[in-house]
Design a protein around this nucleic acid. Structure first.
Lengths: 200, 200
DNA sequence: GTGCAATTTTGACACTGTCAAGATAGGTTT
DNA sequence: AAACCTATCTTGACAGTGTCAAAATTGCAC
């Protein structure tokens, strides 16, 4: 009623949809998000969302994309810290896992099957993921120069494998295979030892 | 018509369902497996499968369970080989990834969200998974004694983290995030270096 | 052959994603 | 101010899903 943005009948349905969807997903999991219920909770008719997102896949892509931007800025924020590189890396690993567990449903959208295999990742989602991955690889290269990560291979390879390790740990918790979060810190520490042994 | 087993109208619907389901899943992905289509391809009415499996979840659990048994016997087969422990471990890592990529849909059922989070893992599935995990941890302990894997932590922790690493790599390929299978062998080699550096 | 129990089918319900066609209403042009 | 256009939203509809309840079928033991 008073914003500057074009705001027809609803106000800003696009944003409302994203917000509500994120909430539902967070609280009840992505599989219990239906376009119809979503429309209902936002207060519009079943098919109204389809004028803002091509389909369900597109909506989820948008959510995932936001996740990538968050994760990327998390990385940049940490990189900017004035601390020994080793400490920053350790901190990043902890932060990565923490983010993954805290925003587990978003994390799943970002990297999970739903979008990348069962669904169709949008171009902008692919771009966002590629960009954060590149940021990561660049940082890996720096970390290699600073002898934090092993030099036994290219930045790409080291980046791929170390990330895979973090990702694997995250997934085991997210999917409910590892449950005991007491153990998480312990595992993370052990994982860091694996990743940082510069002889490897 | 001629088997010993009790075989009423169909023959052995239970087995037929599992086989067809496995095939459909392998070729088209788990999301395009519907109970109705499955019943149709097997040649029975929509609800016939429900007398053999409580629900779709139960059917998928059965498939996953089979996967665990396969994986476990794969482990035992390798363990029995008369070779240096390091070589056997390397071989196992390669075999693990190969299995995961070859039977990617089964692998996803075994460890993915579908059953463990979105669904309800059956008791026998939980038992099977626990059992293979235990077999893994036991082997890790041996590998630690043989200085193949690091002694910096308990068998459980080392087992958890090394498995997480393998799992992460597998997932990235399965979910279509890493696609270039040319690189796989390279990554696996690098991963092995990470995992085996006995100083960590 | 009769009866029982395992097995299968038919019918039904509530839910899903999404398309097509119509209604509405805000902003722009005249 | 009126007319128009276009973005937005709604209603109706269709095909598909998992699965329950009740009825039908069938093989086996007696």
């Amino acid at each position: 009623m008073s914003t500057l943005k074009t705001q027809y009948h609803h106000g800003d349905l696009t944003k409302s949809l994203l917000q509500s969807a994120a909430l539902i997903i967070k609280e009840q999991g992505v599989e219990s998000l239906s376009m119809r219920k979503l429309a209902d909770t936002v207060g519009v008719s079943r098919t109204a969302p389809y004028h803002h997102f091509k389909d369900k896949n597109a909506l989820l892509c948008a959510l995932a994309e936001k996740g990538f931007h968050e994760q990327e800025s998390m990385l940049f924020a940490l990189k900017a810290e004035q601390k020994p590189a080793t400490d920053v890396f350790k901190q990043y690993v902890h932060a990565y896992l923490e983010y993954a567990l805290q925003h587990n449903e978003t994390y799943d959208l970002m990297y999970g099957r739903t979008l990348w295999k069962a669904g169709t990742p949008s171009d902008s989602l692919k771009a966002a993921s590629k960009q954060t991955f590149k940021a990561w690889i660049d940082w890996v290269e720096e970390l290699q120069e600073q002898k934090v990560l092993p030099n036994s291979n290219t930045p790409l390879r080291i980046g791929q494998t170390t990330w895979a390790s973090l990702h694997g740990l995250a997934r085991l918790f997210i999917d409910g295979i590892y449950l005991d979060k007491e153990d998480l810190a312990d595992m993370v520490e052990q994982m860091i030892k694996n990743l940082c042994s510069t002889s490897a």
